[in-house]
Design a protein around this nucleic acid. Structure first.
Lengths: 204, 204
DNA sequence: AATTATAAAATTGTGTACAATTTATTTCAT
DNA sequence: ATGAAATAAATTGTACACAATTTTATAATT
């Protein structure tokens, strides 16, 4: 699909990541460099790079798929609450006009879009807020957790958690009216509800 | 705890890391796999692993040493404030007796130790609080920032920032008396002062 | 049968050669 | 000289062979 991403290790990374996230790999199986290399028809070197990256993203641990426990999920969401809560508060004062428009668009898609579109809009909504916090480190940290966050988002969107979009809308409104404290509080509650719903609806 | 760390990539990692942190590498020079491999007398493969790790720790960027700007430092400390502030608050309720003792010991060493001992005690002080928050992800994130945090700590300790140890003592007291809100607030102010001092006393 | 010791297999770590790509240098036309 | 194009050099990406290590299976001892 890309021209620039001809590199084998990118290909391997995306392939393995998709296999894990779509649940096509039995969680028990050990991901060995050799077998993956054979399956993809490339050498072990790029496979190793790909696994290293997935390991630092927390999707793989000790060469095995890492399925987050409830506690792991709570830990991840605690970090999200701290960082995204801060980002929401910060946004209320410093968000750009353009970003606010895109944020509003995410809410709209949330109301009218297809499941796939909503999945993406949901991601974008949080991403915009994080990026508008103007702290690349925070963006990085959140980015690193995406693979696991994805699992929760899939659950929440596909199983249609109630008030999901309405909560986005409230956050959006709070940011628009420059109410940082409210935006932060709403974001915290929003994430807590996402967490609880995910834990009670373990899909795959 | 010390395993068979004969692995070349561990050796390479520690060597390169030390060279950077002690300022022995000119920030302009590009860290090429080949030249490092030659210098250390090993092959490029383990060098590559080492560089990948240092890159994800933020000490290297695009194969060049990453010297954090003032803005970068502020961003890093913003994350510390969020995570360590939370950890301090959490600690006030859930810290173990043993950890509290070790925390107190760090304060004592801060008063009486040598510069090197204080450096380590300072690290330990923050580390204990972070670990007692019982969230391995938070521990990981902080751990990943250590290399850069080290630069600030060196400045603060070696140039004897006023009230450094006293602030630790106050935080320790707040935790001991289960005053979470106070512990958090003190930690935030403590980190802010560390940041400002570091920015005004750029040592290397 | 359980436990330990030994051997075999699988897997990861490392070195090295070469290909692909990026970066630096030279050449040439204007 | 300046800038574009061509070329050379440096560097990274990949494959593969072999060594070191870890894991698994097998045998031996109690």
């Amino acid at each position: 699909m890309k021209k620039k991403d001809v590199h084998s290790y990118t290909y391997a990374y995306e392939y393995i990541r998709d296999q894990i996230l779509s649940g096509k790999i039995d969680p028990e199986t050990k991901l060995t460099e050799t077998s993956l290399a054979e399956k993809l028809g490339i050498s072990r070197t790029p496979i190793r790079s790909a696994i290293a990256k997935l390991e630092q993203e927390g999707l793989i641990k000790n060469k095995r798929i890492f399925i987050p426990s409830s506690i792991d999920m709570r830990n991840i969401f605690q970090v999200r609450i701290l960082l995204e809560g801060y980002a929401a508060k910060y946004c209320a004062n410093f968000i750009t006009e353009n970003a606010l428009l895109r944020l509003r668009e995410c809410v709209d898609i949330g109301h009218n879009g297809t499941t796939e579109e909503i999945m993406n809009a949901n991601y974008q909504f949080h991403q915009i807020i994080v990026e508008e916090a103007n702290n690349p480190l925070i963006t990085d940290i959140i980015e690193r957790m995406q693979s696991i966050i994805y699992l929760a988002r899939k659950t929440v969107v596909q199983q249609k958690r109630p008030f999901l979009i309405e909560e986005h809308e409230l956050i959006c409104n709070a940011i628009e009216s420059h109410n940082g404290e409210l935006a932060e509080q709403l974001m915290i509650e929003h994430l807590q509800k996402d967490l609880e719903f995910s834990l009670n609806h373990i899909s795959n």
